[in-house]
Nucleic acid binder design. Structure first.
Lengths: 362, 362
DNA sequence: CTGAAAGCGCTTACAG
DNA sequence: CTGAAAGCGCTTACAG
């Protein structure tokens, strides 16, 4: 069995190149300080020895972990309530793209898991205290999220993927976030269907509580609002103000979609198209309407997941590579390789990024 | 803005506790060496200061990264060919469970990505040379996988999730792996359906080339073989030897499943049940047979993904937590917190673990 | 059981 | 442009 060979150190590179440690370090970190011939010698030695700097030593000296952490969740559903066909699609794809974006800046991504919120606080605490990370990605944030308080107390830069709905400080630079504009998405789908000549465009989404605030207070409401505002504006012949016409709400499951299709077809037989809050719901509407009628309803979904591709319906695509790049920018600024507290008042980087989904027509 | 507070060091703990560094280190790493009263003092100081050892310093000194790496793939399909409804389910769930299992042993999981095989070699090379990891998880291995050669040359312990099909050294301790027994799975489903009284049990799977070797040479063939062997044994009334009776092969897509349902129903109208190679294929068979007949065919899928739950059909479940635990054992042995080269001839840990899926009946 | 000291492999002021 | 030296925060033989 091959034993792990002791990796070459900077000392060996210096010896082989016939220069001092300092020079080797300079060639690697500040090439400008060293004249070309010396650089060449050093680089040749680096190549010969297949040298890479020892990351632990560098981290110790620079006090920079050059790492960020992100939580991973299980996609295996344990209980009975539906979570759709591919609940983790966005999260998993985001983590993938985050790793891509981080690699581009020389940053490592460390994953962690949590059984419950307290467990997560412990894990984050350890990650920060051991100085394993100098930045954190938070997903699915709650109102008054205790994780934010913790991370702030540690002075570790963070960013949330998803707006902190309902938080007073939603637009404070203390609460940087990146999100995809759901309302814009459903509006876009509605408009496109209208432009294609359809006039009876319904909506199938998730349940939410009504309240008196003027702005949407969660994702469910946000996506619904995009459809409602747009169809109300386009179609003056009906009153959509109650929000009940042509729209239905149910669980995130194929069955939920099926139920809504049945409901909508019964109440509004003239309906032609249904804008849906998710690909799972869209599939439910598609299948059930195909069963009840000869010709299924036209549907659009959300996330452009494999489901929408396999069943060939339109869907709103979130550009997760761009989401990930934006997240990294908020942690590191426009360039450079350090995770740091960005001064959003002085730099061009924005603390809040709302990306627009695009409609993939099928 | 809260600046990142300088974390407490072992020196400060020692001062507060009124002991030497050495003693603090001992309390943390070898508690037995220190008497209880001293331990108490030290632990109190640790708590007061919220001290965690600096991971970089520990790594530098011990020359152990206490980290493993695993590749992440995108689940977003770029080209036209079907990859099913949830191609990444097993991989993503495995990475999640791997993180859980690693955390239990104090090991970090680092993710990386690769655009192509050469890129992956570069990434692995860097990870090893910078001593960021001391163990590696490899998925989707190829015949004569160059990654294995590379990692072996670095002397970094590794394990593959998935058997190295066709490799001469498949059962060598130089090639440790963990896998799920697909053949056993489809056999199990076939047997259960038979026991329930069904007699006309077909199979819908992926395409593969036939060859002259006696053993299956890939996953596709392995899953097919489980059905064929079992049904041949149970049903002496027919000849299944050609492997063509009651079985069909196609792409991993809903459409592929649909095509096979149509084909099987036409050729064998008496067919009642179809054992499928995946949940995606099972859904295709379910939907198409429901369209062609009043009563859809009974199907079973593979992976117990959300698809099988949403559409309520039976599926073969891989216990990925156990897969992950086995992977960690192969890298670290039965206990302890070091990633190392296990001497499989001397320890009870096995270099090859083939887990049995269980049938979730719905 | 406890302490003083060396050293892991880097980076970085500082001096030349 | 280059070199000798200090020090990051640990762990670990070694001496008491």
């Amino acid at each position: 069995m091959v034993q792990r060979s002791k990796a070459p150190s900077i000392t060996q590179v210096a010896e082989l190149a016939g220069v001092s440690l300092q020079t080797v370090s300079n060639v690697l970190n500040f090439p400008d300080r060293v004249r070309p011939e010396t650089q060449k010698k050093v680089l040749a030695a680096v190549k010969t020895l297949k040298y890479s700097p020892n990351a632990a030593a560098r981290r110790l000296k620079t006090a920079q972990a050059s790492s960020i952490a992100v939580r991973l969740d299980s996609n295996s559903i344990t209980d009975g309530d539906g979570r759709g066909l591919y609940s983790g699609f966005i999260q998993d794809e985001f983590v993938y793209q985050l790793t891509v974006a981080a690699e581009n800046r020389g940053i490592r991504v460390i994953t962690y898991t949590a059984n419950n919120p307290e467990d997560e606080l412990k894990k984050i605490n350890l990650l920060c205290n051991s100085q394993d990370i100098d930045g954190l990605i938070l997903t699915s944030t709650q109102l008054n999220d205790p994780r934010i308080k913790l991370v702030n107390s540690k002075g570790v830069p963070f960013i949330t993927f998803g707006r902190p709905w309902g938080d007073d400080k939603m637009y404070s630079t203390q609460r940087p976030w990146i999100d995809v504009d759901g309302s814009f998405g459903t509006s876009l789908a509605t408009q496109k269907f209208w432009d294609s000549g359809y006039r009876n465009i319904g909506y199938a989404g998730w349940r939410f509580e009504t309240h008196k605030k003027s702005d949407p207070q969660n994702v469910n409401e946000d996506r619904f609002q995009g459809w409602l505002d747009t169809i109300s504006k386009l179609d003056k012949s009906r009153k959509y103000t109650s929000g009940r016409n042509f729209s239905a709400k149910n669980d995130e499951s194929v069955l939920g979609g099926r139920k809504m299709a049945a409901e909508l077809l019964e109440k509004f037989p003239e309906i032609e198209v249904v804008v849906c809050a998710s690909d799972t719901l869209a599939l439910g509407v598609l299948l059930e309407s195909g069963r009840l009628r000869k010709k299924p309803l036209i549907v659009s979904g959300f996330d452009n997941s494999p489901v929408s591709k396999e069943f060939n319906f339109s869907s709103l695509d979130q550009d997760l590579l761009e989401v990930a790049h934006s997240a990294i920018k908020i942690l590191m600024g426009e360039s450079g390789n350090q995770i740091r507290h960005i001064d959003f008042t002085k730099e061009s980087t924005k603390a809040h990024v709302l990306l627009r989904p695009i409609l993939i027509s099928r």
